[in-house]
Nucleic acid binder design. Structure first.
Lengths: 361, 361
DNA sequence: ATGAAAGCGCTAACAG
DNA sequence: CTGTTAGCGCTTTCAT
């Protein structure tokens, strides 16, 4: 098809002596706005307006253009449109990984909300190691997205600088950075750790431990938890601090099981465990069950995430809820507002968290 | 560095009296290939070649261009490049939803594999209802992606037709369609249903039931299972067929619990349950545990998906494994090969499945 | 190995 | 409300 020879579309005006121009190029063959405009009997720009700002053209023209679109099956080339208008209607979303339930809510909400506003989501996975960040960033900036949503990543100052220099609106999420690149929707991991420690203390627990992912944010929750716990006199004897079992993210149920095993070996007297994810917590619960350890009587378990299954467990899981949907919607709103030059009153939002008190603790 | 001022690239031709041309447009202000070329002292096209086909330029030029890129912080505009070359280096991936663990593997693998080959993934969520398909399709085709990966969706013939007409390479996955749009990487849901029925029959189970999502593919597994079960004489009395409890996708642990409750009410004698997801299976197991029903002695449970946690449950979950990674890699390979005009010998691949026999059945 | 010209398909800017 | 013109930033084609 591509090599179908077709006669030059230059009308023979009698001036056949005109030399073949160089640099001429065959079209890809698709239907373009020109074709539609021609069929509708209007100028291309008018067809463009009929599609993008229907209220700016006469009903008659609108009708004709729509008919032409219908008949030709025309689909606007957004690459061309984006290049011309300097608006790509593309938003880059970067997460460490889509594996694991943690960032699903955000990705889902963003994709949904942005799609409703006519934006497409470009997905990037940074991995938990800060290695591919540069290549990823290049790929993102190269597409000139109308916004970038960062979830728990992009720590390298180099990367931050480039993003900033690119002028693309950036929303960082899932954390409260002291100096955000641009906009921010997050919550305090430290505060969560402390609050959970206080919560367990109030329940009378005194020998607490931790099973947590080794990624930075998880660590910060865990460390804050441990500090607060020690401050409240909940360490396993002041000297030892809080026993912590670290696992590699993304966290799994199996890691929760082996985490409990390991912790009990180290410190048989443990009466409460704070896990850095609900999946870990579930693992801890299953292992406890297998060993005949009663939850919450002998062992209190607190998770993180309030995944959908948490309230359906037996016993129901006490956990920390993060409103991923709220974060996603807020982030989407930020980007959309920016794209429309709407003033953003408060570009830093703390969505907070809540401890959902159920049976396991 | 970035703000090193360099003089405007418009040469002053001395003709300052020239009237302001209409239609003239200010550049967005970013650094373009022209700026780089100018700084390197070469023509734009040469700079372009230095970046895209380094072996086609002299080492000297290469060096100079690279320096210029470094100094300016230039990032190629892929929108412009895509428009000119008719290659967007964008691949659209469509899933019903990213919520729920089912399609995570595919999305992850695709994003990863394609990124390594220089492609970006555009994410689309079709939802489980076939409503937004049209708008989504329009958005996808409009970006002229180099490929589309469809996962368990796009049933409407209208949509199929448009995709086909667009000429974009399409890989359908997660199913074995009798007449694929283009390429296909999947497995047979019917065969899975039948095989599980045979498996349970071999184990001596005779009163089987089903908890399954109401989405189409799940239904097909379940119906095939039921048919085969009846054929093997495993119905609850030939007349009744197999008790089935339908739930709304995406499936949850809680639905598994209530599913078991409901099924036991209807048919107390059930000795095996096939669930359309591992999460449902986990729910069934938890509910059984809560009711003192021994698994697998009194009740066998089979899941679907072989999620990471399946082997860590107590008892370990017998389930159907789908190799999402294989599907993703294959699909990515298809698209990349197509983009490079590499002949695809076998555009339809059945990746099969396996029943992972563990303790729960 | 390098360059000049043209144009990918669309929209901003201006004029009527 | 409609049209003309000139590009967006890049790569193709052809020529040297």
């Amino acid at each position: 098809m591509v090599d179908t020879p077709f006669s030059p579309s230059v009308p023979v005006t009698g001036d056949s002596a005109e030399p073949r121009r160089r640099g001429s190029r065959k079209s890809a063959g698709g239907i373009t706005l020109r074709d539609v405009a021609q069929l509708a009997g209007v100028a291309p720009i008018t067809a463009s307006r009929a599609l993008n700002t229907p209220q700016a053209v006469s009903p008659k023209v609108l009708q004709k253009v729509r008919e032409a679109v219908e008949r030709t099956g025309y689909v606007p080339n957004l690459l061309a449109g984006g290049l011309a208008s300097n608006k790509s209607r593309l938003v880059a979303v970067v997460v460490p990984t889509v594996i694991g339930p943690v960032f699903q809510g955000i990705v889902h909400t963003l994709t949904e909300t942005l799609a409703a506003a006519g934006y497409q989501v470009m997905l990037g996975q940074s991995g938990y190691e800060n290695s591919r960040e540069d290549a990823l960033l290049e790929a993102i900036i190269g597409r000139r997205p109308d916004g970038v949503v960062l979830t728990g990543i992009m720590r390298s100052p180099e990367a931050r600088k480039r993003l900033l220099a690119s002028g693309i609106p950036v929303v960082e999420t899932w954390d409260l950075t002291p100096n955000p690149i641009d906009m921010l929707v997050g919550f305090s991991h430290e505060e969560i750790g402390r609050e959970v420690a206080r919560y367990l203390h109030r329940l009378g627990r005194r020998q607490v431990a931790v099973v947590g992912g080794r990624d930075e944010r998880s660590q910060r929750r865990m460390n804050a938890f441990a500090e607060q716990a020690v401050a409240l006199g909940m360490g396993m004897g002041a000297a030892d601090g809080v026993p912590m079992h670290g696992v590699i993210a993304p966290t799994t149920l199996g890691q929760g099981r082996s985490g409990l095993v390991e912790l009990l070996q180290r410190q048989p007297g443990i009466d409460a465990i704070f896990c850095s994810s609900d999946l870990l917590a579930l693992g801890v619960m299953i292992e406890a069950q297998a060993r005949g350890i009663a939850i919450p009587q002998q062992l209190a378990v607190v998770g993180f995430g309030d995944l959908d299954f948490a309230r359906d467990l037996q016993p129901q899981l006490t956990t920390v809820r993060i409103d991923g949907t709220a974060i996603g919607q807020r982030a989407a709103r930020f980007i959309i507002d920016r794209a429309n030059d709407i003033e953003i009153a408060q570009p830093v939002v703390d969505v907070g968290f809540s401890i959902i008190s159920r049976q396991s603790a």
